[in-house]
Design a binder for these strands. Sequence first.
DNA 1: CGATATATGTCAATAAGGCTGACATATTTT
DNA 2: AAAATATGTCAGCCTTATTGACATATATCG
Lengths: 177, 177
Amino acid sequence: MPGKEEHDPAPIRTALSREDGIDLDIIELLFFAYRDFTSDPDQILAADGFGRAHHRVLHFVNRMPGLTVAELLEVLKITKQSLARVLKQLIDTGHIVQLPGPKDRRQRELYPTGRGRALALALARPQSRRIDAALKETGREKRDVIERFLKAMVNPDLRAQIDNLPGRPGTVGSDDG
Amino acid sequence: MPGKEEHDPAPIRTALSREDGIDLDIIELLFFAYRDFTSDPDQILAADGFGRAHHRVLHFVNRMPGLTVAELLEVLKITKQSLARVLKQLIDTGHIVQLPGPKDRRQRELYPTGRGRALALALARPQSRRIDAALKETGREKRDVIERFLKAMVNPDLRAQIDNLPGRPGTVGSDDG
DNA sequence: CGATATATGTCAATAAGGCTGACATATTTT
DNA sequence: AAAATATGTCAGCCTTATTGACATATATCG
């Protein structure tokens, strides 16, 4: 059969495994760990009719109060149209307020309100507890190892973004890598 | 003002920080690490017009060849309607084949084809490389710590699912926790 | 001052990926 | 024969993201 893109449709019955030279264990652990890690706040958010997008916006506005819309887009790596609806909802519900930038009045500085701060804390608390429980398993002295590993998983060019978050003067492996 | 749900709209100017008793560092590291971890396969998938949903299906069919539709739904925790479109595309493109269950012919056992296995490997490779690079940062002898931490992040009732994957007889902390 | 650039907001259309509910079909179990 | 089960499918809805186009306010350049 010429011109036919024939590919063998025969079923492969052997499982993909470590012998294939792939770190399947950690790949899968990351998948399951992250899924459960995000499931805690998901439930709280659902009560307000919010989703994960609201969570991310709320988190970074709380972490970097006064950041501008453009800065927030940069951190989240989404478009302003995607941000618009989510941000509007958070403003309408009194979780976030906008103030004109003091130097450049075109800018809108974003700040959490008391309510916004409270929600951000409520969302972070179960995640923090889960992390603490996991650290207890490894032994808390292994905290540095975990941080170093996770940081090394981030694209090098984005690690600066992390270091610029407040309260991270020179955490783990910040001076070299 | 009676009956008014007044909430103080005053902007909070202080950043949420570690002093609030929350492990913000690891929360944020997990966010950034997972985002970049998934960005590698995302690019490969886009070339075939696939998304993350295809990736997950393809991965577990490769890891557990012969699993049924119901088993796959259980692992992924999605509905059959969600799976339908994605699975159909993977079958139509020759990445996955279905065989009637030998005992119960209502069931459809799912197997990867050569092409499906190749794509699964291509997707896993950059992730595995990223993990290996991160482990090199911590020192490879810390691998156990990482595995133990990630596993402890998973909901206890779901850890069994992980242990039942092939090639994981008794990995880290499987006998007690 | 006028032109241009920038920061933000908004409208419209599109797509992926998830959901629920309802119903069809084949097969197995009772 | 009837009921339960495994799967497939249709229809509609939601959230989150995308691109493109355009409006407005403000800043900056010449």
